[in-house]
């Protein structure tokens, strides 16, 4: 009984109690067993996190301090020279600028279009299930397949897009989609918009469906227009969905690689290059593993500066909201 009380009041007291009855021993065993289970369950994800995330980050930073081609058995220590050299490379700034443009695009275009499609479909249109699948389907296609599809669409003479524009008398609008350095980024963004809007759409759509009907009904009874209902009721209540979509879009923009590499290899003449494709080209195309590692570290820092405050701020907002 004493042991039970101690256990109920304070587990530590129970463990430290000098008089150990059999029930105390049993509960101690049970507690340490639970604790061991917790530790064991935590051990796996922590190990995975450390092995696949933490160690590679430190390893990349370590490599960035060397002049190494990735092949030799020896590396030549050069300190921070790879970092300083990059600061004088126009190519590096060009890729960085592209990443920033991509960030702006990803935060606005797929998010805005996904929200618009979700809002339209949420009005209870006919064929909702069909459109839900159609809107989401592109997101299920792998990046390389998307790139292959759009490479053909963008073929500048006989491609679908050029032919479509010509058919409707808009041949003046046809471009050298992937071959013009001034157009190529917009062309890739078009493909990405088609590809990723489905994700934003799905998250917003499920968010809209989770909004309590009472709120909307009450607003309607009060005489609110559909526009007012959306902006004053639905959109503010979509906050958790917006957090997810914007966060994921920002991360996608900073780690952008596969679609650009598969569509253009960063070309023509580096025009569509982003930091991740530059890193890959420098590491394996030019045998400069140290320099590439420095690009990776810069990318990590830049992404951290942009994304971490957002995640921190949004987490706080969610906590506050839950507390309310």
């Amino acid at each position: 009984m004493v042991g039970l009380k101690a256990h109920a009041g304070s587990p530590r007291n129970c463990v430290r109690s000098p008089s150990k009855t059999s029930s105390q021993k049993a509960s101690r065993f049970e507690l340490s067993g639970i604790r061991a289970t917790h530790l064991l369950l935590l051990a796996l994800p922590i190990s995975i996190f450390v092995i696949f995330y933490v160690i590679p980050i430190f390893s990349t930073f370590y490599l960035s301090l060397f002049n190494w081609d990735g092949v030799s058995k020896t590396k030549h220590f050069i300190g921070l020279q790879n970092y300083s050299a990059l600061l004088f490379e126009p190519r590096f700034y060009h890729a960085l600028l592209n990443n920033i443009v991509w960030l702006i695009f990803m935060l606005i275009a797929p998010t805005g279009l996904g929200l618009t499609l979700a809002a339209i479909l949420d009005r209870g249109l006919k064929g909702e299930g069909f459109f839900r699948i159609i809107f989401f389907l592109p997101f299920t296609i792998p990046a390389v397949a998307v790139a292959a599809i759009w490479r053909w669409m963008y073929e500048p003479t006989n491609g679908l897009l050029t032919r479509f524009l010509e058919t409707f008398g808009l041949s003046w609008a046809a471009q050298n989609w992937l071959g013009d350095p001034h157009v190529v980024n917009f062309a890739i963004m078009g493909a990405v918009l088609w590809w990723t809007t489905g994700f934003a759409f799905l998250v917003f759509f499920s968010g809209l469906r989770n909004i309590p009907v009472d709120c909307i009904e009450a607003a309607r009874i009060e005489g609110a227009t559909a526009w007012q209902v959306f902006w004053k009721i639905s959109f503010p209540l979509l906050w958790p969905s917006t957090i997810i979509v914007l966060g994921m879009s920002a991360i996608d923009a900073m780690r952008l690689f596969d679609i650009v590499w598969a569509m253009t290899n960063g070309g023509p003449a580096h025009a569509s290059e982003v930091l991740a494709t530059q890193m890959y080209d420098v590491a394996f195309g030019r045998f400069e593993m140290g320099r590439a590692s420095a690009i990776a570290v810069y990318l990590l820092l830049i992404a951290g500066v942009i994304i971490l405050p957002y995640i921190y701020y949004m987490s706080l907002r969610v906590q506050h909201r839950e507390a309310e």
Binding site: R151, Y154, E155, P156, T157, W177, G179, P268
Partner: peptide, 14 residues
């Protein structure tokens, strides 16, 4: 025209 937007197989197709 627009050669830079083509792959070598597309150039061959032309």
């Amino acid at each position: 025209k627009n050669w830079s937007g083509k792959t070598w197989t597309q150039a061959a197709d032309d």
